[in-house]
């Protein structure tokens, strides 16, 4: 089996790169943290990898808005390389700040148009929040990253700008029609509700989406923070040992291998 090679993109203010690297390596990948400057100066480097990860953090301090400057930089300097990577059916994941960057550059929800049509705006509560949430998965979804997950999982979130909004009704309708909604915030029984079940006021409780091809995945929760059971509030996971994040990263690794 081929060992999946993952590139974890770092830049000023990215701060979840180490645990994301550890998570991918635990799940069988060989991952490297690479600075944006290096990727810009060696443009062909990106295509040597199978998985591209936009990790969490506060890229450029979230100045202007979260993920905004990173999204702009990438679109300005690496547009063709990123598109080539995305369209060659390789895997891309954006976690939290990475998700914010992916939607703001327009790689999600549709890499073909590569134009922003959804956003992640300030939480309705007006403040940053760190908490564990339940997520309802979507069995109709073809996202490669989320196969083999049960109907309800839990993961931690930690963000101030996570309110998912689409530009208009049509975009939302298309997302649903194409089964691009991957996770929705819910309660323990899978029912939808308001704060704190939905921590940020997202449209239809949306927490994660994918592109129609299922290879590009963006989510507000942090799967890298729940690889083993002890990491959760309840100290429980599945098989008494693991966390749901492990399945997410293993899906990616197995898809490549």
């Amino acid at each position: 089996m081929k060992k999946a090679k993952a590139l974890i993109l770092t830049t000023a203010g990215i701060n979840c790169d180490f645990e994301t690297q550890a998570a991918l390596n635990i799940c069988g990948a060989r991952s490297e943290r690479v600075h944006l400057h290096e990727l810009i100066s060696k443009k062909n480097k990106l295509q040597n990898y199978d998985i591209l990860v936009f990790p969490g953090g506060f890229s450029y301090g979230d100045d202007i808005a979260s993920g905004k400057i990173l999204a702009y930089q990438i679109k300005d300097k690496l547009k063709d390389e990123i598109l080539k990577f995305a369209q060659s059916k390789k895997l891309i994941i954006g976690i939290c700040n990475g998700f914010q960057a992916l939607v703001k550059m327009g790689l999600l929800p549709d890499e073909k148009t590569f134009k922003q049509s959804v956003t992640l705006y300030y939480n309705d509560s007006g403040k940053f929040e760190c908490r564990w949430v339940y997520l309802k998965t979507n069995p109709q979804n073809n996202c490669i990253w989320t196969k083999n997950l049960p109907e309800i999982i839990c993961l931690p979130i930690a963000h101030g700008e996570g309110k998912f909004i689409t530009k208009d009704e049509k975009i939302l309708k298309n997302l649903k029609k194409n089964n691009q909604v991957v996770f929705k915030y819910c309660d323990a029984k899978g029912d939808f509700g308001k704060y704190p079940i939905c921590p940020n006021g997202s449209q239809e409780n949306i927490a994660a989406i994918s592109n129609s091809g299922g290879n590009i995945f963006g989510l507000m929760p942090h799967p890298e923070r729940f690889i083993f059971a002890l990491q959760s509030v309840t100290k429980k996971g599945f098989d008494d040992q693991f966390g749901w994040g492990k399945i997410i990263f293993e899906n990616a690794v197995n898809y490549i291998g």
């Binding site: 701060n15 998570a23 760190c130 890298e224 990491q231």
Partner: peptide, 15 residues
Amino acid sequence: IRQYDFEVQGQTIVK
């Protein structure tokens, strides 16, 4: 407490 990211780095076992 909830305004702090007490989980970043993924190493906070007792929170």
